[in-house]
Structure formats: structure tokens, C-alpha cells
Simulated scan of single mutants.
Amino acid sequence: MTTVSVTNARAHLPELIEDAQNGAVFLERRGKLEAVMISPQHYERMVEALEDSEDIEAFDAAMAEEGENIPWDQVKADLGWT
């Protein structure tokens, strides 16, 4: 993890991009965290993990709903998949 001021980031952008391949680079302005730079690979993994988490949450919510269960064969027939 690297933390650098925005001013320093401007002067050292190529090096910071290289650092971001191995971990997050935090950019501060006037001592306040303003942005985080990460590699595209890290970003994609984070987005996939978030989407997986949202899918699990939606599944859990659906399973918690009360009501009659519909057999899978009936669902396929209703959708014209059989």
C-alpha cells in the first residue's frame, strides 16, 4: 500500500502506475484521501466479487420469501423449455 499526495502523483505517475500493479495507491489532497489507483486486474476481481456477493444476497432473499414452491419441471414447461 502506497499513499502519496496528488502533487507528488503528478510528478511520479509512471512509477505509481507500476506500484498499482502490486497493490493500491492512495492519493491524498491536503491530507484527505481523494482517490485510489489499482490495476485493471484488481479492479475486475473486485467487481466480480461484488457481483457475486449481490447474487448471493438476492438468492438468500428469494429463498427467504414465503409462498408455494414451484417444481423446476413446471417452471421449464411454463417457459416453453421442454
Rank of each mutant, 00 (worst) to 15 (best):
D60I: 15
E65Y: 04
P14H: 07
P71Y: 06
A62N: 10
L50E: 13
Y43K: 14
Q41N: 08
N22Q: 10
I17L: 08
Y43F: 15
Y43V: 04
A61G: 09
Q74L: 12
N8S: 03
A20E: 00
E68L: 04
S5I: 00
A64G: 04
L79G: 06
L27I: 15
N22A: 03
V75E: 04
T2I: 07
Q74N: 09
L79K: 15
E34T: 10
K76R: 15
E44D: 01
S5R: 00
T7P: 04
V25K: 01
T3S: 08
V6E: 09
D60K: 12
P40R: 01
E51N: 06
S5K: 00
E65L: 09
V47S: 02
I17Y: 01
Q21A: 09
A49G: 13
M46T: 07
A62V: 04
P14D: 04
M46K: 11
M63R: 15
D78F: 11
D52N: 08
A77Y: 11
R29I: 02
M37I: 12
E18W: 06
A62F: 12
R10I: 06
S39E: 04
R30I: 04
D52I: 08
L33K: 15
P40I: 01
N8A: 01
H12A: 05
E68W: 02
Y43E: 06
D55H: 06
A11I: 11
L79S: 06
D19K: 11
E48D: 14
T82C: 08
D52Q: 14
H42E: 07
F26P: 01
L13T: 15
A62C: 05
N69A: 13
R29F: 09
E57Q: 01
Q74R: 15
E65Q: 15
E68Q: 06
I38K: 11
K32N: 05
E66A: 10
E44P: 00
R10C: 07
A20T: 01
E66L: 08
V4N: 04
E34Q: 14
R10F: 12
H12K: 13
A20I: 01
W72H: 11
G80A: 12
L16T: 10
K76M: 13
Q41L: 12
R45C: 07
R45A: 08
S39T: 07
A20Y: 02
P14Q: 07
E18D: 13
G80N: 08
P40G: 01
T82Q: 13
E66N: 10
L16Q: 10
E68F: 02
N69D: 12
D73P: 02
I70C: 07
R30Q: 09
E48F: 04
T82G: 14
E28M: 03
P71H: 09
N22F: 05
S5N: 00
A24K: 14
R30K: 09
T3F: 05
A35H: 13
G80S: 10
A77T: 10
L13H: 15
N69M: 09
E18K: 13
G67N: 02
M63V: 09
K76L: 15
A9K: 03
V6Y: 12
T3I: 08
D60W: 09
A64I: 02
N8V: 00
L13Y: 14
A64W: 05
M37L: 15
A64P: 03
W72R: 13
W81P: 05
T82D: 13
N22K: 07
A20N: 00
A35E: 04
T7M: 13
E57N: 01
Q74G: 05
G23V: 00
Q41A: 12
Y43G: 11
